[in-house]
C-alpha cells in the first residue's frame, strides 16, 4: 500500500519521527533532577560540574560510537583541542567564555573534518589506531610548542563572567555548574534532534550494516564525516568548558587515559540512546570518588575489575539495565523508544 502511494509513506515516516521526537516525562524529570542537585548541594558544585562536562564528552563519543558505530580510542584529541583553543584565547586577553566555547568547538570541528577521511578506510582496528595516533600527535604538538601552549607547565588564565553577568571559577562554582548544565542541555537537545532526524536513521543504518546502507542509496562516507565533525565539535565544547571552569589546561588533556575513561563512561551507561553517556559519567566519577577516598592509590584496580566483569558478563545485557529501569517506571514510553 505504502509503495503505491509515496506521500502516504512520507507522512507515516514523518509521524513516526515526530512521535519519537516528543519529550517524555522521565526525560524531563531527569533534567529537572540535575538542576535540583546543583541547587541542593552547592558544596558539591565542583564535582557536579566535572560530571556534567564528562557527560558532554561522553555524549559526543556516543554520537559516533552509539549512533554510527565508529570506534575511537583518541576522542581526547578534540577534547584537548577545544580546551587549549579556549585557554589560549583567554590567555591572550579575550576572556569572554561564550566566545571561547564557540572557538573551542569550531577548532575541534575543523580538526574533525580534517581527520574524518582517515576513518573511512580499514576496519575497526585501523580506526582505533588512527584515532589514537592523532590524539597522541596532538599531545606531542602541544608539548613541543610551549610558546603557545605553555608546554608541560600548562596555561593559567582568568575568565570573564558568563554573558557578562555570572562570574565562574573558584569563587563561583555553582555558576560554573549551571553554565555547564546550560551548555550540556542545549547541545543535548540538538543531539537528540539529530538522532531522531532522517540523518539519525541513516546513521543507524550505517551502524547496522554499512554495505547495505550504501546499497540503499545512503552516501555513507558523507554521513560518517558529518557526524564525526559534529561529535568533534561537541568534544571541543566539553574541553572548552573544562578549561574555562577550572581555568587551567595541561598536557594530560590529550592523554590516552582520557580517551579510555570516556569510553568506559559511555560503556557503563550504555551506548546508543544518548543518556548513557550522562548516566555513565556520573556513575564513573562518583564511583571513582568513593573508591579513591577509600583506597587512594589503587582505585584503578576496581575500575579495571568492573570493566572485565562488564565485558565477560555481556556488555549488551548490562547496558540495557538503565533502559529496563526506564521501562519499569514508564512502560509505554520505553516501548516506543525513549530516544
Amino acid at each position: 500500500m505504502s509503495a503505491a502511494n509515496p506521500s502516504a509513506t512520507t507522512r507515516r515516516l514523518a509521524a513516526h519521527l515526530n512521535r519519537r521526537a516528543r519529550w517524555r516525562w522521565p526525560e524531563i524529570l531527569f533534567w529537572l533532577a540535575i538542576l535540583a542537585v546543583i541547587f541542593a548541594a552547592p558544596s558539591r558544585a565542583a564535582i557536579i560540574n566535572e560530571v556534567l562536562i564528562a557527560g558532554l564528552f561522553a555524549l559526543s563519543l556516543d554520537l559516533i560510537l552509539g549512533l554510527a558505530g565508529i570506534v575511537s580510542l583518541g576522542h581526547a584529541a578534540f577534547f584537548g583541542l577545544g580546551a587549549y583553543a579556549a585557554a589560549i584565547l583567554a590567555s591572550k586577553g579575550i576572556a569572554d567564555p561564550t566566545l571561547g566555547l564557540v572557538l573551542g568547538a569550531a577548532v575541534a570541528a575543523v580538526a574533525g573534518l580534517a581527520t574524518a577521511p582517515l576513518l573511512l578506510r580499514g576496519a575497526d582496528l585501523t580506526r582505533l589506531m588512527v584515532t589514537l595516533g592523532v590524539s597522541l600527535m596532538l599531545g606531542e604538538l602541544a608539548n613541543r610548542n610551549g610558546w603557545l601552549t605553555g608546554g608541560a607547565d600548562g596555561l593559567n588564565f582568568s575568565i570573564a563572567p558568563v554573558l557578562g553577568l555570572f562570574p565562574i571559577g573558584f569563587t563561583g562554582q555553582r555558576n560554573a555548574a549551571l553554565y555547564s548544565f546550560a551548555v550540556l542541555f542545549i547541545l543535548f537537545t540538538i543531539a537528540r534532534r539529530l538522532a531522531q532526524s532522517p540523518f539519525g536513521l541513516a546513521l543507524a543504518a550505517i551502524r547496522e550494516n554499512r554495505l547495505r546502507a550504501g546499497a540503499l542509496g545512503i552516501d555513507t562516507s558523507r554521513r560518517i564525516i558529518a557526524i564525526y565533525v559534529v561529535a568533534a565539535a561537541y568534544a571541543g565544547a566539553a574541553g572548552a568548558l573544562l578549561a574555562q571552569t577550572t581555568q587551567i589546561v595541561s598536557l594530560d588533556l590529550f592523554d590516552f587515559h582520557r580517551s579510555a575513561d570516556v569510553m568506559l563512561m559511555l560503556i557503563i551507561g550504555g551506548a546508543g540512546y544518548l543518556y548513557g553517556g550522562l548516566i555513565g559519567a556520573s556513575a564513573f566519577i562518583v564511583l571513582r570518588d568513593v573508591i579513591s577516598a577509600a583506597t587512594p592509590e589503587y582505585w584503578e584496580f576496581w575500575i579495571g575489575l568492573a570493566l572485565v566483569i562488564l565485558v565477560l558478563a555481556g556488555r549488551e545485557r548490562i547496558g540495557e539495565a538503565p533502559r529496563r529501569l526506564i521501562a519499569f517506571f514508564a512502560p509505554r514510553a520505553a516501548r516506543r523508544g525513549v530516544a
Binding site: 569510553m263 560503556i267 582505585w299 579495571g304 572485565v308
Partner: peptide, 24 residues
Amino acid sequence: GASPLDQVLFTIGLVLMAMPIAAY
C-alpha cells in the same frame, strides 16, 4: 569471537588491574 570494542574494553580492564597490583 567478540567485537573489537569488547576486546579493547576487556584488555584495558586487565591493564588497569595489573598496574595497581604491581604497585601494591
